[in-house]
Amino acid sequence: MSDPVLALEGVTKTYNKGKPGAVEVLRGVDLHVARGEVVALVAPSGAGKSTLLHIAGLLDTPDTGSVRIGGDEMVGLSDRRRTIVRRNDVGFVYQFHHLLPEFSAVENIVLPQLARGVSRAEAQIRALDLMARVGVAERADHRPAAMSGGEQQRVAFCRALANEPRLLLADEPTGNLDPETSDTVFEALMDLVRSTGLSALIATHNMALAARMDRVLRLDKGVLGAG
């Protein structure tokens, strides 16, 4: 059996460790995401799901434990190497789109590819293809402020997948949208993920959306279990 795309084993994280008011956020978390698997992560507010996603995406480091992406250990890597892995292997989607306001939709998707060394022409082709898949190709030349919330978030999905990562991490990716738009945008995300064979860990409060994924995990009081 091949290695999981993402594997966390024995991960712990405590903020203000050794000080009064220390907060134990993660307590020995084990988590595997297989190739092509879409896993829902549900948790009460403040339970540590964002911390877990940040550790999985190499934006934070665990106090103890192992973090592997594609079978390679990430704990102990240099900052430069961690940055390369984040750029090439991990895509991020947040509750707010975080698109660069001074650039058009297509430029927001082209820019991360240029940072990786892809030619502008090739980056443009991929960006437009991704936008077409999620139904916003006609908004390519619009800046974020000229798009609806659902359109902005779909462009953010495309940007996250621009460099063909092996893992997508999403933190409440439809949390800022009304229920009808949320459902439409989530469907677009799932279609994009399925069509690319991507592995994904998606945090959500929406149990109806979580039920549409392959597996549901619940984080509560620093412990991860089946949802």
Results as ranks from 00 to 15, higher is better:
Pro62Leu: 09
Gly175Thr: 07
Arg133Asp: 09
Ala22Asp: 00
Gly150Asp: 03
Gly149Glu: 00
Val223Ile: 05
Arg194Leu: 04
Gly150Tyr: 07
Glu138Cys: 03
Ala123Asn: 07
Val106Arg: 10
Ala137Arg: 12
Phe186Pro: 13
Val25His: 04
Arg139His: 00
Met213Lys: 02
Ala127Ile: 11
Val67Ile: 08
Asn163Met: 06
Leu201His: 08
Ala7Cys: 00
Glu24Leu: 05
Ser104Val: 10
Met1Leu: 07
Ala146Ser: 08
Thr51Trp: 09
Leu189Val: 06
Thr181Trp: 09
Asp63Phe: 13
Glu180Leu: 03
Ile55Cys: 06
Asp3His: 13
Leu31Glu: 03
Gly197Cys: 06
Gln95Val: 01
Phe157Gly: 00
Met207His: 14
Ser50Gly: 02
Asn206Ser: 14
Lys221Asp: 15
Leu100Asn: 00
Arg215Asp: 13
Pro44Tyr: 08
Gly28Ala: 09
Ala145Met: 07
Ala210Pro: 13
Val11Met: 03
Ile202Cys: 06
Gly36Leu: 13
Ser78Phe: 04
Ile69Phe: 14
Phe186Met: 15
Val5His: 03
Met1Phe: 03
Val136His: 06
Lys49Gln: 13
Asp220Tyr: 11
Gly225Trp: 00
Lys49Cys: 10
Val193Leu: 10
Lys49Trp: 04
Ser119Asn: 08
Thr181His: 07
Leu201Gly: 15
Val5Ile: 15
Gly71Tyr: 04
Asp141Ile: 02
Asp141Gly: 10
Arg215Lys: 14
Glu37Asp: 03
Val33Met: 09
Glu107Met: 11
Thr12Asn: 14
Leu130Glu: 02
Arg126Ile: 07
Pro112Tyr: 09
Ala140His: 12
Val223Lys: 11
Asp79Phe: 09
Met207Leu: 15
Ala47Glu: 03
Val90Gln: 10
Val42Gly: 05
Gly57Ala: 15
Gly10Thr: 03
Pro101Met: 01
Ile109Asp: 14
Asp214Val: 00
Arg35Phe: 04
Leu177His: 15
Thr174Asn: 06
Ser66Ala: 15
Ser50Asn: 01
Thr64Phe: 13
Thr12Leu: 07
Lys13Gly: 02
Leu6Asp: 00
His54Val: 04
